[in-house]
Design a protein around this nucleic acid. Structure first.
Length: 301
DNA sequence: ACTAGCCCCTGGGAGC
DNA sequence: TGCTCCCAGGGGCTAG
């Protein structure tokens, strides 16, 4: 499931491939993924626009596009927002549609079943294509005028970016320390901090030696400090390794990330804690599973 | 305003 | 081998 490091990896990849390109066509076979505008109107509205920037906000991929009346005058800016949710993959490649099936024209990592789940393709003016593959069809796509999309709660209500320079310890502390919920759920709350999901919340809490069930407002100052520094360290490290491919994350070229190899706790139930050799536990929490070491992270309440 | 719980979807694993 | 059942999980939505 793509979290901040995975989404940033995709965004970095896209920046190398699609900047300055014009969208010349759209193919889609699953209407429900397009939340805005009506799926039938997407191609009409986005065709001819030029890609000016690719950014990330939380787990959202933001593609800014422009339409100008004449040479760079009278320009309007549009925004294409893509959220990959659990199993979405944004991929660069070349495909052909044959009897309703999507087939890759390129050799390499993309020749996987990921092609079977491509539901949306943007055709670019240099022959390349940007495709959204999503096994579970949970992904969402929003498109419209920049101002209009930025106003939507999908973007407007997202909390601060954990790796921003301005997100210092004091801001972190004020965001976290008044929340009554369990710390793991608070870390994953996109309105509190942007971009952290199930994998990295487990890894961060393990490194900070904090039990996932502790109410956020019960954390002591030294725990908050450990949490803050674990958060920054782990997200940066994961970014460097191009994300975690524990389930099925792939970068924009179909390659897995390497953080899974060095992960300490996530999906290691029954294995030994790398720090103290205690058997790692998994517990259910609000429909998600939390992995933790019952000894290193025993500081419940 | 807040929170807990259901729901979306489909492949894969467990159980028989 | 093959069928059925259950589970994963981000976040939107609804009910309390």
């Amino acid at each position: 499931m793509p979290e901040l490091p995975e989404v940033q990896t995709i965004v970095n990849d896209l920046n190398k491939k699609i900047l300055g390109r014009k969208i010349v066509g759209v193919w889609l076979n699953t209407l429900k993924i397009i939340k805005k505008p009506k799926a039938a109107d997407l191609e009409k509205q986005i065709k001819g626009l030029r890609i000016k920037a690719v950014k990330r906000r939380g787990k959202n991929i933001l593609i800014y596009l422009e339409k100008c009346q004449m040479l760079n005058v009278g320009c309007q800016t549009f925004l294409l927002l893509i959220h990959q949710k659990l199993t979405g993959h944004l991929l660069m490649g070349k495909w052909k549609i044959e009897k309703g099936r999507v087939k890759s024209l390129l050799k390499g990592p993309l020749e996987e079943k990921v092609n079977n789940y491509i539901h949306l393709i943007f055709y670019l003016d240099n022959g390349w294509q940007m495709a959204l593959s999503d096994l579970r069809k949970f992904a969402k796509v929003l498109f419209g005028l920049k101002e209009e999309i930025e106003k939507l709660p999908d973007l407007a209500e997202i909390g601060p970016e954990p790796l921003d320079k301005s997100f210092n310890f004091l801001i972190f502390q004020s965001a976290i320390s008044n929340k009554k919920g369990r710390i793991k759920q608070v870390l994953m709350d996109q309105k509190v901090i942007a971009g952290i999901g199930n994998i990295y919340s487990d890894e961060i809490l393990w490194q900070a030696k904090i039990h996932p069930f502790i109410p956020a407002n019960k954390l002591k100052i030294n725990q908050l400090k450990a949490l803050y520094s674990a958060m920054r360290q782990i997200l940066k490290k994961a970014l460097k390794l191009r994300g975690t491919s524990i389930s099925d994350f792939r970068d924009a070229f179909g390659k897995p990330g390497r953080y899974a190899e060095i992960r300490k706790i996530y999906q290691r139930e029954g294995e030994k804690c790398p720090r103290c050799k205690t058997i790692v536990k998994r517990v259910k929490m609000g429909g998600r599973s939390a992995h933790f070491c019952p000894r290193c992270q025993r500081n419940l309440r």
